[in-house]
Simulated scan of single mutants.
Amino acid sequence: MTKGDFSMIYFDNAATTRQKPNEVVQAVTEALCLLGNAGRGAHEATLQASRTIYDTRRKLAEFFHAESPERMVFTGNATESLNIAIKGLLNPGDHVITTQLEHNSVLRPLYEMEEKGVELTIVKADVQGRCSIADMEAAIRPETKAIICTHGSNVTGNLVDIAAIGAMTQKYGILFVVDASQTAGVFPIDVQAMHIDILCFTGHKSLLGPQGTGGLYVRTGLQLRPLKSGGSGVQTYSKKHPQQMPTALEAGTLNGHGIAGLDAALDYLKQTGMDEIREKEQTLMWQFYEGIRDISGVKIYGDFSQKNRCPIVSFNIGDYDSAEVSDELYEGWEISTRPGGHCAPLMHEALGTVEQGAVRFSFSHYNTEQEVGTAIEAVRELAEE
């Protein structure tokens, strides 16, 4: 495959959106040629980097309805954001609640903290991959410090009602940490209205930015222990890393070139319209779901009773290993999908697919109805073999 060749039918957008807006590509290219190191001098190259980073910070604050740009912290991805949130928030003796829906970027840091004395409750999901908010509430106890959960499952596409959970955490005076990896950029998120204390996100999925970009929002008045310390460009002679936000959580050189691309992506989302993008992606998802759901041998996972859901369809064909089906789709039709466990082991336990995994299709607004039609026929042919 040559550079810029989009002849492959790409349905792995929940892992990363491969096709980016042209404006993003151009912004990264220009940044590679022009930007210096933000906060490390007063010449034009470093000042331009600082302006770009601040401009992106301001747009993210507006996008997520944060109190101010200073509450937006840049990271390399959602995994780093979640590690900062979890390891910077919890202490031995604290109790934390999470769910079976979670990605390993939530689970593994929580398991590490559990080894250090944090008590962990994992709320179970049903066979459709849904967790009960009532079960979350029942798990709350006096030493509960936080609920940490995803906004949308990367396996089933089920949405979680984070507004309702936020209201509940507000009621009990506990903290609410949200993993928005699958939803930031395609579903509206208002951190203040939804009572979200920490929002973790990545730039390379539905925000349509480059890989190596991500961030977190931290509510005003909430302090986290930094995951890293080191160079900051300010307070050089202090033995301690600066405590003011966002510098407190941003040790080292930021990915200015990637952030320039994220800046352009945010402009694209605003101009194109997040609602329009979501409607297109959901339309393609429903076209695919309706096209394969009655094929003999196909089993689809997740709750499709709700129209509003992430643009994801995961399924299996009979007893075939999901990796085998995914390979056949690529070799026969050049259709790219994601098989296996999707870094969400507890979700697959709930679905009963630990051994088989599942074939995941995830849609972008750059996909077409014709591509979806080809995918439906491919699944039909494979199921008939």
Rank of each mutant, 00 (worst) to 15 (best):
N154I: 15
L35V: 05
G332A: 00
L346W: 13
T99K: 07
E80I: 14
A323D: 13
Q271G: 01
A134H: 13
F304V: 05
H151T: 15
Y54Q: 11
A45Q: 13
F63M: 11
I376Y: 02
T121N: 03
D5E: 03
E30I: 11
E114F: 02
E115V: 07
Q19W: 04
K228L: 14
Q128L: 14
A14D: 07
D197Y: 02
T75Y: 09
E331R: 12
W286K: 00
S7I: 05
Y268I: 11
F288N: 03
T202I: 01
T79Y: 11
G152R: 12
Y320E: 14
V218E: 09
E371D: 11
G261L: 10
S364C: 08
D275H: 12
Y366Q: 00
A61Y: 03
V359Y: 07
T56V: 13
A378Y: 06
L199H: 04
R130S: 12
V234P: 02
R57V: 06
E102A: 15
T121Q: 06
S336C: 11
T220F: 06
P210W: 07
R71G: 04
V313C: 02
H204I: 04
Y330F: 14
I335L: 06
R40G: 07
E44D: 12
A38N: 06
P109S: 08
Y111P: 07
G157F: 03
L208M: 13
E44C: 09
L60N: 00
I312S: 00
G36R: 07
C200A: 12
D294M: 01
Y320H: 14
Q223E: 15
I9E: 07
L224Y: 11
A138L: 10
L35E: 09
D267A: 02
T374L: 15
L35W: 04
I162W: 15
A14S: 12
R58W: 08
F363H: 07
I335G: 03
A45F: 12
S232Y: 08
A260C: 00
H43K: 13
A139G: 04
F361D: 03
T121P: 01
K205E: 09
L60C: 10
T183H: 02
L222H: 09
T56D: 06
I376F: 09
T368H: 00
N316R: 10
H348V: 10
A45N: 11
L35Q: 09
I84F: 10
E290R: 12
I84L: 13
D319Y: 01
V234H: 07
A350V: 01
E384N: 14
I165R: 02
V106Q: 06
E385F: 14
G230Q: 11
P311Q: 10
L207M: 15
E377M: 13
R57E: 05
E112V: 13
T213I: 02
R18W: 10
P109D: 04
